[in-house]
Design a protein around this nucleic acid. Structure first.
Lengths: 334, 334
DNA sequence: CAGGTTTGAGTAAACGTTTACGTAAAGGTG
DNA sequence: CACCTTTACGTAAACGTTTACTCAAACCTG
């Protein structure tokens, strides 16, 4: 159907090897043949077939990316960074939505293997043993994003969750708050759960504030869970003057609930988020939060991955700098 | 490196043809050989190579999806629907972020052609002649999402923009509003621009309200442009009791600006959006808006596309039902 | 000008599948 | 039992590239 290299060769009266050579600027042909070949390529509108190419040089110039939820703002910011970087380097990306489901994840891994992707980015999920085994047997580089692992050969790029949470809570304390609630992410989540409550707890203790479990309630990072958690917090610890949520979505849930209860933010209660999604500046009032540079994390992860693909050498993990972005949901109390 | 069909054949003492046959349940072998082959497949952990397969049967089981901005909530909701449906049918999706840039778009189209995708979904952008020509020469099915065209062979799935805007404004009128501002999308956009202001204008006129261009201001669908537009509107037509924005993001911008100006929504002014993004219910107060079922649109578009791929027959365009979802940014005035 | 080197190509194998075709043995039929 | 059909495979071509190898002609070099 579409013209192949063979058609070009025929029409230009050369061998396919020659066509391939001019296609890749390999030399070994006269200027005249080069002209002729290029000309017929234009005439025929020849386009190389990446599939055939992939078959022979065992590179598909494609990477796979796994997200727990593609439609979340978190994922799509990452995806944006990944897709930008990767396309500049002439790779494409196949996206997979795992739904946090083991079966699905394995199925996608399987699929990515069959499609012979050159590398994989695995986002926001714990690298379970079974995933690791599969990945191992696939023999392609992997990088983790917003996740972490002890397997030495799989690098990650993320923020220091403990420190970021610590800094957030410390910021709240600096602003004069001493009764600070926390809406944590999924209980027991070794990445975005535990370290963040640990940061919260340590920041409190460093300032001589005793940790009180009544002030800690669990959500699952989602808006809805943030609403529920805030309701609980308001009931259990009405004395709290501030709450730190482990995700922007939950913080926004908290914000909604607070205003629903007739409270003004930040006058009656301060709220701080985590992530700095695009949302954060859109809500009302704009959310003070700790920023993870998601777009950049996506780029960096891709850079690492492509580096591993092209050099064959392992890469080092990277901890990105977080920062506190002050907007209008936290007030100083005196 | 990874075992191939040849390795399986050798180890099982059969020909590769036989292995292929049991792989595809084609018959033409004894039960005994089937067992043996399946067994060695397990032992070797053989996985078929989709690239080689693609080369021969000219199907890659992959589709390309083009978005103007992957990181927007709009795109990622669509992507979610697309990716769900498509994966169930054993396809994968390659995402491309066009940035609304002609050069980039063409480059991606080029890339998708080289990668031999089986079909393409083109979202939220006008199908320019040059895109169409390229697509045409690629000889793969295409479906448009939230866009439209006169080319008979490329079907679209979208909402009736004119009618949706009409209904939104009519709803506002029903609620007693007569001075209604509009924040339009990009001026001259033939899909999401013009038809929506036309719907606005006609709904007004149908109720005997004269269209007044002072009440119409243009944005570009983004939050920031919504903010700017709202500032302008507040200045030019302080008498407006309601504003209809052509996107949720702009509506939310309007909402921010209104509260910044000390106005209460909906007491002092009503605001209505368009899209029903996930955001809409997260802001404060939750946004009344006209809903486009983005996830479903994604699924339906994929369904059409895969239908075209697998049957080779053209598909019909589809206009999805919109609906008004009442939340808390519109009040009835008496 | 004999010998070696460079230039400009062509030939063919290889990548991992699928599949049309061939074929020997087994089974069925009258 | 002669003939035909079916079963159970194997052979090899094909998909569209890349690339190692080969080779003739042209060009140097002393």
């Amino acid at each position: 159907m579409n013209p192949t290299i063979k058609d070009v060769a025929q029409k230009a009266n050369v061998s396919i090897a020659t066509v391939s050579r001019v296609l890749h600027n390999l030399g070994g042909y006269s200027d005249q043949t080069k002209q002729k070949v290029n000309q017929t390529i234009k005439e025929l509108q020849y386009q190389p077939n990446a599939i055939a190419r992939g078959l022979i040089n065992k590179r598909t110039q494609t990477i796979g990316v796994l997200f727990p939820d593609v439609s979340s703002s978190f994922s799509s910011d990452l995806l944006h960074g990944i897709s930008e970087f990767v396309h500049d380097r002439n790779y494409s990306v196949i996206v997979c939505n795992t739904d946090q489901d083991g079966k699905r994840t394995l199925k996608y891994l399987q699929l990515l293997r069959e499609k012979q992707v050159d590398g994989i980015i695995f986002s926001s999920e714990v690298l379970k043993q079974e995933y690791y085994d599969m990945l191992e047997s696939m023999n392609v580089p992997v990088v983790l994003v917003s996740s972490q692992t002890d397997y030495a050969n799989v690098p990650y790029v993320k923020v220091d969750d403990y420190q970021a949470a610590y800094d957030a809570v410390d910021y709240l304390i600096t602003k004069g708050h001493r009764s600070i609630g926390m809406i944590s992410g999924t209980k027991g989540d070794p990445i975005a759960g535990t370290p963040r409550v640990e940061g919260y707890r340590k920041a409190l203790e460093a300032q001589g504030i005793a940790f009180d479990s009544r002030f800690l309630v669990y959500g699952d990072f989602s808006y809805e869970s943030g609403c529920r958690a805030m309701e609980a917090l308001l009931r259990r610890t009405p004395e709290a003057t501030a709450v730190f949520a482990a995700s922007d979505e939950m913080a926004i849930g908290a914000l909604s609930v607070a205003t629903k209860h007739g409270m003004n933010v930040p006058e009656d209660i301060s709220i701080m988020g985590y992530d700095d999604l695009r949302l954060a500046r859109m809500v009302n009032p704009p959310l003070t939060t700790v920023r993870q540079p998601l777009y950049d994390i996506g780029r960096l992860a891709s850079e690492k991955l492509i580096g591993m693909i092209e050099t064959g050498e392992p890469a080092e993990s990277l901890v990105c700098a977080h920062s506190i972005v002050e907007r209008q949901t936290v007030r100083a109390i005196t």
